[in-house]
């Protein structure tokens, strides 16, 4: 049963509206002119050279990347442990663990951001990359939690039993069977966490200092100052990395699904 012509037309128009912004940005970043025009004038990499040559962009890139990696690793560890606790722990009810792990997802960023700011400003973490990474890690925990929990529920208990009857003690079973089986999902969750941090601007703005600026913050300040093709180039770089990582995450999840069936 195919959809009618009317709905198909709407769908195509909406598809164009959805994709248009990304395409326009990518296209304008290659302009050889000095202002943003679409279609771009000529083709050049000059704006990429400019942002990669610009210290501010480079520093922001490094800050963002480091924050993202740190946040992803923390979120991965915490999300995974909470998922195991929810699925297999006996003391704390599963729903309580799940609520705790999922809350960062429903609290509006600006509310969480103020909290982070007020809580962290008086600690030695403030103005240090770890404060931002920790805050971003909290935003990434739900992704890791959900991913690992799903993978963990899909692990066949008989496979773990097979390992133990093959002579593996409890810890060995976990290390050689359970963890390898959920690892792809944990990494996929970690990639989501990285991308969350990589794109995040609200919390970052609140925790930012003149010496601690991520790419989105620099981007936002340029946005307020005025538009340049270099902004497009930066946007394209940010988006490209995001897409690559999310495709990897998607492939990892697919592989996981293929295994569990």
């Amino acid at each position: 049963m195919n959809a009618g012509l009317f709905s198909r037309t709407i769908a195509v128009v909406v598809a164009l509206l959805l994709a248009a912004p990304t395409i326009v940005i990518a296209a304008t970043s290659f302009t050889s002119g000095v202002i943003i025009t679409f279609p771009p004038k000529g083709f050049s990499m000059r704006w990429y050279e400019e942002i990669f040559g610009d210290r501010a962009w480079r520093d922001a890139f490094v800050t963002s990347f480091t924050t993202g990696i740190l946040a992803a690793v923390i979120a991965m560890v915490i999300g995974t442990l909470l998922a195991f606790m929810a699925a297999r722990g006996r003391l704390v009810p599963r729903s309580l663990v799940a609520t705790l792990a999922m809350t960062p997802m429903i609290v509006p960023l600006v509310v969480a951001g103020i909290g982070f700011y007020m809580a962290y400003v008086h600690t030695s973490l403030y103005n240090h990359i770890t404060s931002l990474a920790l805050a971003h890690a909290m935003l990434g925990v739900p992704f890791c939690f959900l991913n690992v929990l799903a993978a963990l529920t899909a692990v066949d208990p008989r496979v773990e039993e097979a390992a133990s009857i093959c002579g593996a003690g409890k810890l060995t079973v976990i290390a050689t069977v359970t963890v390898p089986l959920v690892l792809p999902s944990a990494v996929a969750g970690g990639l989501f966490a990285f991308v969350t941090s990589w794109d995040e601007v609200v919390v970052a703005t609140l925790l930012a200092t003149p010496t601690l600026r991520t790419l989105p913050i620099l981007f936002l300040s340029q946005l307020r100052e005025g538009l340049e093709p270099s902004t497009s180039a930066a946007a394209t770089v940010i988006t490209l990395l995001t897409i690559v990582l999310l495709v990897i995450a998607g492939l990892l999840s697919r592989r996981q699904r293929g295994r569990s069936t």
Binding site: L18, A19, A20, P21, T22, I23, V24, I25, T28, I36, F38, W198, D199, V201, P216, F219, L220, L223, L227, T231, S232, A235, I238, T239, T242, I243, L246
Partner: peptide
């Protein structure tokens, strides 16, 4: 494509 482009960048694009 649209999902994976950050909100900030899409805001910028709409401005453009």
């Amino acid at each position: 494509v649209s999902f994976w482009t950050s909100l900030l960048i899409r805001t910028f694009a709409w401005q453009v």
